[in-house]
Amino acid sequence: MSKYQVNQKGYYGPFGGAYIPEMLYPNVEELQKKYLSIIQEDNFQKEFNELLRDYVGRPSPLYYAKRLSKKYNANIFLKREDLNHTGAHKINNTIGQILLAERLGKKRIIAETGAGQHGVATATVCALKGLECVVYMGEIDIRRQAPNVARMKMMGAKVVAAQSGSKTLKDATNEALRDWINNPVDTHYIIGSVVGPHPYPDLVATFQSIISEETKKQLFEKTGNSLPDYVLACVGGGSNAAGMFYHFLDDEEVQLIAVEAAGHGVNSGESAATTALGNEGILHGSRSLLMQTKDGQVIEPYSISAGLDYPGIGPQHAWLFKSGRGKYVSVTDDEAMRAGLQLTQLEGIIPAIESSHALAHLEKMQVDKNTNIVVCLSGRGDKDLDNYMKYFGF
């Protein structure tokens, strides 16, 4: 067992666990007891892999970005999760969790979403399987991610606005947890990131691990070496990064770089750079790092990216940061937007603003022409066109 993976008690080092109200114990305990045996069953794996291949469109390509590589004098490969059905990595997890929910006999699915990609992916698999779907989304995110809201509604999902707090991802998560408490018997909560009580961080990372599993094989085919020098991914809660890092965790020669959202600047008061600003605490059912006041009140995060403005990170990321296995950095809104436009104009690929944060860090790296870098392009930028247009005045 890797020292960077979850232990039998649900912890990554000092982080993780299940800090939940009593009414949620039956749900979470059922998951803890059954999830590993269910997802390891042959018929589960067969259906999961068939859907990933025939429905999602995997494997997603590992693309050598020739002009971007020339710009930075390195070999830059993009793991094209943006080419998945629904336009992001989120579908990998929702396919797995809907199959798990079916086997647990659940008839109703709830989810939270920020950028809307997880909401779309959840609505998609509910339509596929004919299950009721309710998605909680912050009121502000509903406004700035209107195309994804329309997609969810077309799929038959009910989209419920979270109107408390910052009216973004944290608040949508709070509302989804309340719903689960009130509907414990027939409802499964498909959490979209590597957050929440055990076993969710491990469950989501396991389903997303297909990203790095494919990457190793594809990089070997292209370079003769399955191990890059660097792996980059953006981090809010951290599911695309968890999947991108998963099969490299014990390859200590591979540098893992997670890029958080600095917003208007790490110390501007409008940021979501959790590892720079956060302290240990409990958020949404697990012990991790989170942005909080001295008396433990959650500080509202900010990012131009609706998928990164979360006030904490998943417990595995907290452990990778604390243990030194991962390097956690941040870039500002401005840096991310410029990087997104640059990729568009160099390679003809419009990235999600979340993914643009990872791309922006390339500017800050010391590399040479023999350096192999893999960047997780976690999502496509269709959903963000309005933001790009406003920012650049197109």
Rank of each mutant, 00 (worst) to 15 (best):
K3Q: 12
P21L: 13
Y35H: 15
I39L: 11
Q40F: 02
K46C: 08
K46M: 09
A74D: 00
H85F: 05
H89R: 11
N93K: 05
I95Y: 06
K106I: 07
G119M: 00
A121G: 02
T122C: 13
T124A: 13
C126Y: 02
V159Y: 14
V159G: 15
A161W: 03
N174G: 04
N174I: 13
A176C: 05
R178F: 02
D179I: 06
N182E: 14
Y189R: 13
I190R: 01
P197V: 08
P201G: 11
S212V: 00
F220E: 10
Y230E: 00
V231C: 01
A233D: 08
A242Y: 07
A242N: 14
A242W: 06
G243E: 11
V259D: 00
H264M: 14
N267D: 13
N267K: 10
A273M: 06
N279H: 13
E280K: 15
G285S: 08
S286P: 01
R287P: 00
D295P: 06
Q297Y: 15
S305F: 02
A318I: 05
F321K: 14
K327P: 00
Q345F: 11
G348W: 06
I350C: 09
A352Y: 03
A360K: 08
D368Y: 09
K369P: 02
N370D: 14
L385Q: 11
L385C: 10
L385P: 01
N387T: 15
F394P: 02
